[in-house]
């Protein structure tokens, strides 16, 4: 019987759907028999059993060894770090948000954490009580406030509607997750400039102990990471096909290779184009390159200067490098 490797994934919340889409983009499509079931599988990797849990429970299940691997928010991991946890890939590139300190807009005098420190002392000296901060992230909040010299405060733990706490009156300011800041603004709160506690996005985590002790888990992890790395690298590239008129394939190759923008990953592939006799002595070639997508307009301009035309750019799905850098790092961390 083959060992099973359990991958815990978020069942609901902001990163659930993006996680399924991300895995699909990595050619690791999830099969979930029906919406109400908590288990599923990845048909491409037979050893993997998928367990659907809330984002916090994903972390707990990996920490306690119920699951060997999981995808959850980096904010959740930072808040509840466990010694058996290994952050395998901290930036999967989706589910971006920030944990921030936000104070009432009315606090016109508060624009920095130094101001929050000063106001916390005002509370102690003038109101004879601690300043209160509402949050679902007490550990990171505490650590961040201490780092900023704020030691006199009371944490009000809450599970939802944190933004309303200062208006309702059960806290004076908040530490909350935000993506765009809209909800905070709608609740008359403003983010403190140097009050960003963590930049978070979805991340892949694993149980160090279980991965280190299981060859199957390591093989599954390698397969998953090969696909993830390839997909994440692939996002940065476009495949470009261009028709170029030139004297020879070598001449065109030199022109493309001599420019940083068009050198591609390992240089272009060049092939002659078959054309019906038209009396012209021009020779046409087609060149195929894998190029960084963020330079595409500069690439197009350069290709035109060397006689390129009919440029076709298509997104790259996956770029498999010589080895998965992330998997290599994991093996180093487990040693």
């Amino acid at each position: 019987m083959t060992d099973k490797v359990t991958l815990a994934l978020p069942s609901k919340g902001a990163i659930a759907e993006p996680t399924y889409n991300f895995l699909k983009d990595c050619s690791l499509k999830i099969h979930k028999p029906n919406e109400r079931q908590y288990v599923g599988r990845i048909p491409k990797i037979a050893e993997v059993e998928v367990l659907f849990q809330r984002v916090k429970d994903v972390l707990y299940k990996v920490s306690d060894g119920t699951a060997q691997l999981g995808i959850t928010g980096y904010d959740v991991v930072k808040e509840n770090f466990h010694q058996d946890l290994l952050v395998i890939h901290p930036q999967l590139g989706y589910g971006h948000c920030q944990l921030v300190v936000a104070v009432p807009e009315m606090w016109a005098d508060v624009t920095s954490m130094a101001d929050v420190l000063d106001v916390s002392l005002d509370f102690r000296e003038q109101k004879y009580r601690n300043i209160r901060v509402a949050t679902t992230y007490p550990n990171m909040t505490r650590e961040f406030l201490h780092q900023n010299g704020i030691h006199h405060f009371t944490i009000v733990k809450a599970d939802g509607a944190i933004e309303a706490a200062p208006t309702i009156g059960y806290a004076d300011f908040v530490v909350d997750l935000t993506q765009t800041g809209t909800t905070l603004r709608e609740n008359h709160l403003k983010i403190i400039g140097d009050g960003i506690i963590v930049d978070s996005q979805a991340c892949l985590i694993g149980n160090k102990r279980l991965i280190a002790s299981s060859k199957t888990a390591q093989n599954v992890l390698r397969t998953i990471l090969e696909h993830m790395d390839a997909a994440i690298v692939g996002r940065k590239y476009m495949q470009v096909t261009v028709n170029i008129c030139g004297n020879s394939a070598e001449d065109i190759g030199n022109k493309l290779d001599s420019h940083d923008l068009t050198r591609g990953l390992e240089g272009p592939t060049i092939a002659p184009i078959y054309s019906a006799p038209s009396g012209s002595s021009e020779k046409w070639y087609t060149a195929t390159l894998t190029l960084q997508s963020n330079t595409m307009m500069d690439v197009v301009d350069y290709l035109r200067t060397i006689g390129g035309t009919q440029i076709v750019a298509t997104p790259v799905h996956s770029v498999f490098m010589p080895e998965s850098e992330t998997y290599k790092r994991v093996l180093d961390a487990l040693r």
Binding site: V103, P104, E105, M106, W107, A108, D109, D118, V119, D122, F123, Q126, K127, I131, R132, P166, T167, G169, A171, D172, F173, H188
Partner: peptide, 12 residues
Amino acid sequence: MGGRTREDIATR
């Protein structure tokens, strides 16, 4: 708002 009055803020 947030336990501070306008006067608190003005004073600070």
